[in-house]
Nucleic acid binder design. Structure first.
Length: 373
DNA sequence: ATGTAC
């Protein structure tokens, strides 16, 4: 191949600004992943951070073989943004919080449509743990008013953002895969690959359906109505042709830039940005999926415990509220544990990957009502 | 990340 040298030089790309801070371990993981057999190129996005062996906030392009372990257990995890008819004039924060109650218990069979696939049964209607959340947001700054007209969105209307995935289903799929194939990946033409792709699709479908269940469940508690503006996954595998290579695009915490408008959320105490992606092969058609962790989960409590208690962490600088009765989790998910979203956006703007549509700020975040020490 | 493994 005539362009081997060029390929070798550009096998690992990182989208970053001068002030983007990236953990060394994450870059190391990115470089290690780039060495996997049949890997063509990898891109670290500005929210790149270490994961279990492989980094999060990255896209990986391979040919003839793909790696389910790169997608991880939460196949189909993503963001759904809903327009609602809720306004802060109609409902106080107190009332919204009270009326929402708990959505920690899975919906029962009788609360679900009866024509759904059998595997849509893993804790339906629940958001799960970790960085998952459901959040009411309010428009704060508008850069492209015409986009909001297209969505028939006024400044008073609250938006509902749901970040969740395929719950136990993706976990079962990955576990079975790793048991049988370890981390060697699958030859794309093999029957095993076809089988994984079929299960992967089921997980994508379930994750999307689950986000809809969550949104509808919340709106019902508020006696409100809404409609989904978009639903985009950031953990998925897609067949793709890039630079004349027919291969496989793995996105792990990487938001697609080829599916229309998307949202890049900050931490629960930071802004979120609605953006119009400008698709680019330089970023493997991907964007950051959020702010990216700054601190490891295990160290958050010790780092913050002298400054805040759990109660204080349930209120943010925006005056928004975070419903999270799990004491460990609220420290792990504190705004300080994440990078500021501004820097992530700067890196993507400088790289010409996005055009801003609007800035949103949090109003009420749901994590869990499960009371845990 | 996970109807969590010990």
């Amino acid at each position: 191949m005539g362009n081997t040298l060029h390929l070798a030089a550009s096998r690992v790309q990182i989208i970053a600004a001068e002030n983007t801070w990236l953990e060394g371990k994450a870059i190391q993981q990115l470089e290690t992943t780039a060495q996997l057999p049949d890997m063509v190129s990898v891109v670290g996005l500005p929210d790149l951070h270490p994961g279990r062996g492989y980094p999060v906030g990255a896209a990986f392009f391979s040919h003839s073989r793909f790696y389910p372990a790169l997608i991880g257990n939460d196949i189909g995890c993503g963001m759904a943004l809903w327009r609602t008819d809720l306004t802060l004039n109609k409902w106080s924060l107190d009332k919204l919080e009270k009326r929402l109650g708990s959505i920690d218990n899975p919906l029962q069979a009788e609360e679900l449509p009866d024509d759904i696939p059998e595997h849509f049964c893993y804790s339906p209607g629940t958001i799960g743990g970790g960085n998952h959340f459901a959040e009411l947001q309010q428009l704060d700054e508008i850069y492209q008013p015409e986009m909001l007209e297209t969505w028939q969105l006024s400044k008073q209307q609250l938006l509902l953002l749901v970040h969740s995935g395929s719950r136990g289903l993706g976990q079962v799929i990955l576990e079975q895969h790793v048991r049988e194939h370890g981390h060697n990946g699958l030859i794309a033409s093999s029957p095993e690959a076809q089988s994984y792709l079929q299960q992967h699709q089921q997980a994508l479908d379930y994750a999307c359906f689950n986000r809809q269940l969550i949104a509808e469940r919340m709106l019902k508690r508020w006696r409100a109505h809404g409609s989904c503006l978009f639903d985009v996954s950031h953990n998925l595998l897609t067949p793709y042709t890039i630079g004349n290579v027919d291969g496989w695009l793995h996105r792990k915490g990487a938001t697609p830039s080829d599916q229309g408008a998307v949202i890049i959320p900050g931490s629960r105490g930071d802004y979120s940005y609605l953006v119009q992606p400008l698709a680019s092969d330089r970023s493997l058609f991907s964007l950051a999926h959020g702010a990216g962790r700054k601190w490891m989960r295990g160290e958050c409590k010790a780092r913050l415990t002298g400054r805040y208690n759990a109660e204080q962490l349930s209120r943010t600088a925006f005056g928004s509220r975070v419903i999270c009765l799990d004491k460990q989790l609220i420290f792990q998910e504190a705004p300080e544990a994440y990078k500021p979203i501004g820097g992530v956006m700067d890196a993507m703007l400088q790289a010409g990957l996005v055009k801003l549509i609007a800035r949103l700020k949090p109003v009420l975040t749901y994590k869990t009502r499960g009371n845990k020490e």
